[in-house]
Write a protein that binds this DNA or RNA. Structure first.
Ligand SMILES: Nc1nc2c(ncn2[C@H]2C[C@H](O)[C@@H](COP(=O)(O)OP(=O)(O)OP(=O)(O)O)O2)c(=O)[nH]1
Ligand SMILES: [Mg+2]
Ligand SMILES: [Mg+2]
Ligand SMILES: [Zn+2]
Length: 575
DNA sequence: GCCGTTTTCGGCCCGACTGTTTTCAGTCG
């Protein structure tokens, strides 16, 4: 059982309780714990006792016992009891935008509606308007909501979201002209979360009304969901929601802080404020008793400063220890893109890349790098034109020729060797020993059992020839789940072997993910950031790996490729 | 259901928009 599966169980419990009219805070307790379990790196299977479980925030006596039951039996009787009390199609109604627990419960109890089809029929037959608090508009909104539910979009990858956000901001600047003063992206995109559910913009305006009008009339808009004086929400033609909030300039920092979130972070911050007798909102800070405004933050850091905290970087705002670190003065000095000296994962046209050795080298230099590791695929990966030993040697000559003409840059002669099903590497030892950088990755047999996959990867690391474990979980965001593996044991093996583990920066991968890279650091394992470029144009995607590294609390020393070429090769034992 | 330098019981963030309602409940961010 994976942490994600356990998290899903508790989300189901939350929904079922909610539909029975259970206390909101009890429901939210299950949701909160589900989020915290999903973002726990170590598999709960390997937590040895209840005390260890209870160190997960939000896990108390009751939930620890339920996790135990899930791990021991794969089932949760409490969930089954709740399921017996609620029609199976009912929880799905909660996913319809505009429908929450109160309305769904009323529809169920008073009209006997138990699934989406029945809901649609009731709305069309105009039966819903007779319920208290509902009317003809409610029926229309339910029908629209069902359409939206059926057209439901998955979360957008950050790599798509950030460029799209830039485009939208530019479009709005054009459309609103001088009426728009300042606009920034907030929400999960600003926190650089690997996927984003929507785009959240915050702005100030000389003429807020005009800006709102311009926003809801952008050509990219397919539907206006909300349209108020300080906040509007639109759906784009691509089916994606975009929020815009506007506040007076003196409150911009308060709004940016609020809209950057995360929700959990905001709640923690506001609780800290409460204890000091003040109240934080997106407009500023007020005295909890008198309501007098004490601060309107033009800069978001003023909000933290008011609570005697240093400013917390957006990437850390997840309520995963950043408040404790801020209070202790132990916030990390996060990695910056400018500190990256080179890229440790790239392909050329020798394997499945699109560009030549020289083209990749030139492009890396244009980015200001001191080195680029060319890590083409190995023989058994014939779909990716893996290099035979002969071709590998041929490429080495081409790399030498290229380097001969360079003063402050070098191409590193590397490989991304396949970790074969039996855990062996895909080149003879004497070949691997000649290479500057050996990245080793799993590309086949993703369906292996957890133990088998773990043994496979550990064996590869134990060979002593691996410098970097490539994309360690094999996931493709929105397309392929990570393979099942005991990451804790893999990280221990990497530590023993003095191998780094990769943050593969390609936006489809981001592998390791943030919380796993953080666990690696905490175990004392070094990270390597690689773009996995298959084209010169992919090289700049490395920045997404830096974002993930920042979300993992990484500092420059934790990352292999903040080192100079010489230092890097020394660390890898190549000099 | 969880949690505690003011609590082991009694709180649990705060505000915008909509549609229904004559003052607010529900939903969402
Ligand atoms: N104080 C407070 N702020 C919230 C709440 N819900 C959302 N926010 C703030 C923090 C969020 O980052 C921000 C934007 O809300 P979203 O629902 O778009 O969440 P976010 O962008 O973090 O994640 P997403 O990828 O869109 O699902 O609004 C809440 O319940 N309370
Ligand atoms: Mg968002
Ligand atoms: Mg939003
Ligand atoms: Zn690969």
């Amino acid at each position: 059982m994976t942490n994600l599966e356990i998290a899903r169980v508790f989300r189901q419990v939350a929904e079922l309780l909610e539909l029975q009219g259970e206390d909101h805070f009890r429901v939210e307790a299950y949701r909160r714990v589900a989020n915290n379990i999903e973002t726990t790196s170590e598999n709960l299977l390997y937590f040895h006792d209840r005390d260890a479980l209870r160190r997960i925030p939000g896990v108390g006596e009751g939930i620890a016992a339920k996790i135990d039951e899930l791990i021991e039996t794969g089932r949760l009787r409490y969930l089954e009891e709740l399921q017996a009390q609620v029609p199976p199609g009912l929880p799905q109604l909660l996913e319809i935008p505009g429908l929450g627990p109160k309305k769904v419960r009323a529809l169920w109890e008073q009209l006997g509606i138990t699934n989406i089809d029945e809901l649609e029929a009731a709305a069309k037959a105009q039966k819903i308007r007779h319920l208290p608090g509902m009317g003809a508009k409610t029926e229309q909104n339910i029908l629209k909501g069902i359409e939206r539910f059926r057209a439901h979009q998955e979360r957008m990858r950050l790599g798509d979201a950030l460029p799209y956000a830039e485009q939208l901001m530019e479009a709005l600047r054009q459309a609103a002209g001088a009426a728009l003063e300042r606009i920034e992206i907030a929400g999960s995109a600003r926190r650089r979360l690997e996927t984003v559910g929507d785009l959240d913009f915050v702005a100030t305006a000389a003429d807020p009304e005009r800006v709102m009008e311009a926003f809801v009339h952008l050509p990219q808009v397919s539907e206006v969901r909300l349209h108020g004086p300080t906040r509007s929400t639109i759906t784009t033609t691509a089916g994606f929601n975009v929020d815009l909030r506007i506040v007076p300039a003196e409150s911009f920092g308060s709004l940016l802080q609020h809209s950057t979130g995360s929700k959990a972070h905001n709640i923690r911050l506001r609780e800290l404020a409460q204890r000091r007798g003040v109240s934080i909102s997106e407009y500023g800070i007020t005295d909890a008793d008198s309501g007098d405004r004490l601060l309107a933050a033009a800069d978001e850091c003023e909000v933290y400063a008011f609570l005697d905290l240093p400013c917390i970087p957006p990437e850390l705002r997840e309520d995963r220890g950043e408040f404790e670190a801020a209070a202790n003065g132990t916030l990390p000095h996060l990695l910056e893109l400018e500190q990256i000296r080179g890229d440790l994962h790239a392909h050329t046209s020798y394997s499945d890349g699109a560009c030549s050795v020289a083209e990749m080298g030139d492009a890396a230099q244009a980015l200001g790098y001191q080195y680029l590791a060319l890590t083409d695929h190995s023989p058994s990966l014939d779909v990716a034109h893996g290099l035979s030993v002969e071709r590998l040697l041929q490429r080495a000559e081409e790399i030498d020729d290229y380097n001969a003409g360079q003063k402050r840059f070098r191409l590193l002669n590397g490989t991304e060797t396949d970790i074969r099903a039996d855990g062996s590497l895909d080149y003879p030892e004497e070949i691997l020993e000649q290479l500057d950088v050996v990245v080793a990755s799993v590309h086949t047999r993703f369906g292996m059992k957890r133990e088998e996959m773990t043994d496979r990867i550990v064996k590869a690391l134990d060979s002593g020839h691996v410098d970097v474990l490539g994309h360690p979980t094999g996931r493709l965001i929105n397309r392929r789940d990570p393979y099942e593996v005991d990451l804790g044991r893999v990280l221990e093996a990497a530590k023993r072997a003095d191998a780094a583990v990769e943050i593969n920066a390609f936006p489809d991968r981001l592998d390791l993910r943030d919380v796993d890279a953080r666990a690696a650091k905490e175990l004392g394992v070094r990270l390597a950031i690689g773009s996995d470029a298959h084209h010169t144009q992919h090289l700049p995607l490395l920045r997404y790996g830096v974002y993930t590294a920042r979300r993992a609390w990484l500092e420059p020393d934790d990352v292999l490729n903040t080192r100079s070429a010489d230092e890097l090769l020394r660390l890898l034992g190549k000099q």
